[in-house]
Design a protein around this nucleic acid. Sequence first.
DNA 1: ACAGTAATGGCACTCAGTGCCGTTGGGAAG
DNA 2: CTTCCCAACGGCACTGAGTGCCATTACTGT
Lengths: 200, 200
Amino acid sequence: MALQLFIERGFDETTVDDIAHAAGIGRRTLFRYFPSKNDLPWGDFEAGLQDMRTFLAALPEDLPLVDALFAAIVDFNRFPAEEIPYHRKRMELLLNVPALVAHSTLRYAAWREVIADFAAARLGVEADALEPRSIGWIFLGVSLSAYEQWLQREDADLVPLLESALAVLRTMFDAGPDAGPGSGPAAGAGPAAGPGSGVR
Amino acid sequence: MALQLFIERGFDETTVDDIAHAAGIGRRTLFRYFPSKNDLPWGDFEAGLQDMRTFLAALPEDLPLVDALFAAIVDFNRFPAEEIPYHRKRMELLLNVPALVAHSTLRYAAWREVIADFAAARLGVEADALEPRSIGWIFLGVSLSAYEQWLQREDADLVPLLESALAVLRTMFDAGPDAGPGSGPAAGAGPAAGPGSGVR
DNA sequence: ACAGTAATGGCACTCAGTGCCGTTGGGAAG
DNA sequence: CTTCCCAACGGCACTGAGTGCCATTACTGT
């Protein structure tokens, strides 16, 4: 796998030729399966997005939008225990290698679109309207800042971090217009909050 | 200016040689001033960030964090009227050309860091903690979704759109845990809100 | 005018990505 | 078993971004 090479040698230090050679295929063939070197660490992302769409569509209508979206991102980021170390390495690359950080944006755009489409339908507005688009960005931010923390601690679980990240939002805006986040309890208590606690 | 060529011919259709030649300098020299072709539309972003740091530092201590950050992003995105058409073209490229969308992420990371550093100081936590990082993402999302709308309408002003985008957050989380954003007044009324109205 | 230094830009190289096209391999039909 | 056909394969050559090296040029102060 190309991942292995990236992890061992570094992304920039591994050429496409190296990967093709290691995979026992021609360089030209590799580019027929992956549109760019940057896409190699991503695997089949579109499949994950399709799962997320399906998951969202299956949620009860009366589940509040924020909760629905939160449930979806939790589900989206669920992995079998044995894949987690691998997933960690993958995310480490994606969030730290500049070329991949940049390229990932394009994937995130598709991800945000799934969120935005769902939010738009719920809100009864166009998919390219301000609210659904903003919501897409917000949940992407929640996910990525949680991932960032997750990578910082070998023993961390992602779900509580996602909850904490969402809790930051609640603390910032929930306490009413007079209280900045400086006032209320900081969301830093997050990881201490039990699973589900932040999800109303 | 390289911008002019990108606007006329398209980003991908303009080679670095074209630009260097048009600028009357050698290709090698161009790469000494700009680390990559992708950086050309950005100009001196770091200077803008420095201004934002200064602006934030000068704000009164008792201004709530959200309001402080909002004021900063409004200030950051203020341009002289005569530069606005140019700025529009620039942002159109940055938000629509895939290579630039991807690359811009690296600039946004630095931008988010300014936000996060300020938030961290205010909250009394580490700059790489969950809350400030999340806050950085949130305000980036607010900015970019506002820009996206701005580009959709030739006659739009950015500031009301920024206010509306922030209002989306307020409506999602301000109304208490029982009300999804579906309940309250949609932030779509945003552009109608007068300047300053959303900034408590 | 001149020495010293910084900026310039030509040259050649690496690597990603692409178009073209000949080769191969594995059925399906005879 | 042979032949035909189609799709996958992969070599080759090309473009374009980005970089190291180094000779040349332009500018500085003396």
